[in-house]
Design a protein around this nucleic acid. Structure first.
Lengths: 341, 341
DNA sequence: CTGAAAGCGCTTACAG
DNA sequence: CTGAAAGCGCTTACAG
């Protein structure tokens, strides 16, 4: 029950009657070892339940074999598949995954200087960075010291050329809005945007505008609202739009989380979907097909984004070739909230 | 742009004209250092962008200052608040968080021997363990070597006394089913369970049975189905029940994820909720209030569970007092899917 | 095929 | 208040 001292490579070496160097060699397959001794050593390793201490390896190899994930906060349905993809990538490549949220602590304190150091060159070999988790100055510093970083759903800031991975937001939205206009003859389409600087939101807004323009539908500022890419924000905004008497026949909520809020507000206001109002989202989350009515949306392969980000980062770390930017294609998923079937 | 060698404590010491020991002292506040030298050292640290290498610290201190999180797979709405709580706890206590999913890799391979070693005594000071991520033999081994572990939503296996944290499943369900029976006069209540061995599911089933018994309602095997605590499983099962002609006037879906599937199936089958069928869930996820109709459910403070788990684990690690078991109270949240309002 | 030795970057008694 | 020295557990040339 008391803590047992962990076996070290020296323990294994002694029990096997060899030197630590030889044990190290069988551990890494880094040199030929006679079959006999190898077998003996492996038996002892198992017997002693020996596992190399990463700390010691890190110190001598100057590599941590660890990837850091930096995020502003953990929330939204989006987060889960993203992490799932990242975790899968990390597992495939044999790296460890260290996670840190730069959000305020549970007492609501803002992060101090110390937290800037939570993840960095001292404890990881590279970083995957969510939008909003570190500022541009830190990104530039990381870039200037040549530290591997890959960006998720955001472009590299000026002065850096970090690779980034995201999804085809603009064309995905374009097809989505085209569908609303061409098939369902919608003309007054609300768009609910995210926070200023939210790049997914910005690209989706561009797709929205381009579709309107292509169909010679005037762009109306009163149809643009803030949804915050979350249920509550979208819900509140829709209630206000309705109360303000804004006329609309469709809503593109920005993403699927907020589509749930939109649907809820419309239901509460007695506006039948899709008969009177079409509602569409973006992402195609697991719950989206189970909304009422089932949500027409754009499928974004978020798990793949996470997986790819790890692969790019590992390529950076290993100084191999890698793509500077990968944009995963998105796909229109037609269900019933738009008015189809 | 090339990789710069990171500053070491020796670099700081030299630039400050002191020894490494003194630098170490100001870093830890572990001894009084003259104000002058301290100020000088701090300036150099900042100037050189020095951060201590955890690997070196770990090696000498024999502590990793990191907590490991072991999970079977990342999915479900449940996961996000749980991780959020864990991350908050870890941040508050100054530990790092290493995450590993024991799920098959992205090629569908089953985990090999190696992955048993992904997280353990060699690279963490303690483990938070999700159900299904490690087997009982490994738990017993961990226990026998005195390694700190806290269990989430599962009881400690025989032969171990690891602390566990979860929520009041049984009484929460009891109140939920009582509400259905007493207020809405439901008599034929479907229960959708999770996988065999899923302890939350088992406790909820007990609460369900106790409520029925207390109201002298016979327990009917044909009303028990498998929902798997996920949208799809619940959806399919409901479709089958309906097709089989099973009579029911309410559904307790097991959790909120599956409630979305139930609602969807019922809608598709043309069974109005809540007029003809009451539907209730468990967890109170962010999306639940936005379902149609808004879901009556039981609020489970999952984020608190995660936070508490970290606190218990840290107490174990620091050999302080800790509770052997913490059960967070749950609370009935009445919305409209049960038939209220 | 194998071992002795140096060294990775830190902390911690031990002296002073 | 401060420094010299040992040592944490490993890997890696260097010899043989």
């Amino acid at each position: 029950m008391g803590k047992k001292r962990l076996a070290t490579i020296i323990d294994v070496a002694k029990s096997s009657g060899v030197s630590a160097a030889t044990v190290s060699r069988v551990l890494h397959g880094t040199a030929v070892v006679s079959p006999d001794t190898e077998k003996r050593i492996r038996a002892v390793i198992k017997d002693l339940n020996y596992a190399p201490r990463p700390a010691a390896r890190q110190l001598v190899s100057q590599r941590t074999n660890t990837i850091g994930l930096l995020l502003p906060e953990i929330s939204g349905a989006f987060f889960s598949p993203m992490l799932k993809g990242i975790e899968a990538g990390v597992r495939d490549t044999g790296f460890d995954l260290l996670i840190h949220s730069t959000h305020s602590d549970s007492n609501g304190e803002v992060p101090r200087q110390a937290s800037r150091r939570a993840l960095g060159e001292h404890n990881t070999d590279g970083l995957i960075v969510f939008p909003g988790s570190i500022d541009q100055a830190e990104m530039r510093r990381l870039h200037s010291v040549g530290f591997p970083v890959v960006l998720l759903h955001q472009a590299a800031p000026d002065g850096t050329n970090f690779p980034m991975v995201t999804v085809e937001n603009k064309s995905g939205t374009l097809h989505l809005i085209n569908h609303l206009i061409e098939v369902h003859h919608r003309q007054r389409i609300v768009f609910l945007k995210g926070l200023a600087g939210h790049e997914d939101s910005e690209w989706r807004e561009r797709g929205y505008r381009e579709s309107l323009e292509a169909h010679h539908i005037p762009w109306r500022p009163d149809l643009i609202g803030y949804g915050g890419f979350c249920e509550e924000g979208a819900y509140q905004t829709m209630l206000k739009l309705i109360e303000a008497g804004v006329q609309f026949d469709a809503v593109f909520s920005g993403d699927d989380d907020s589509a749930a809020g939109v649907l809820s507000a419309l239901r509460q206001a007695g506006r039948p979907v899709p008969e009177e109002v079409s509602v569409v989202g973006f992402d195609d989350m697991p719950f989206s097909r189970y909304l009422s009515p089932p949500l027409t949306t754009v499928r974004a392969p978020i798990e793949k984004v996470g997986l790819k980000a790890v692969q790019l980062l590992v390529a950076c770390i290993q100084e191999k070739q890698y793509q500077a930017e990968v944009l995963f294609p998105t796909e229109l998923v037609i269900r019933q909230s738009c008015g189809c079937l």
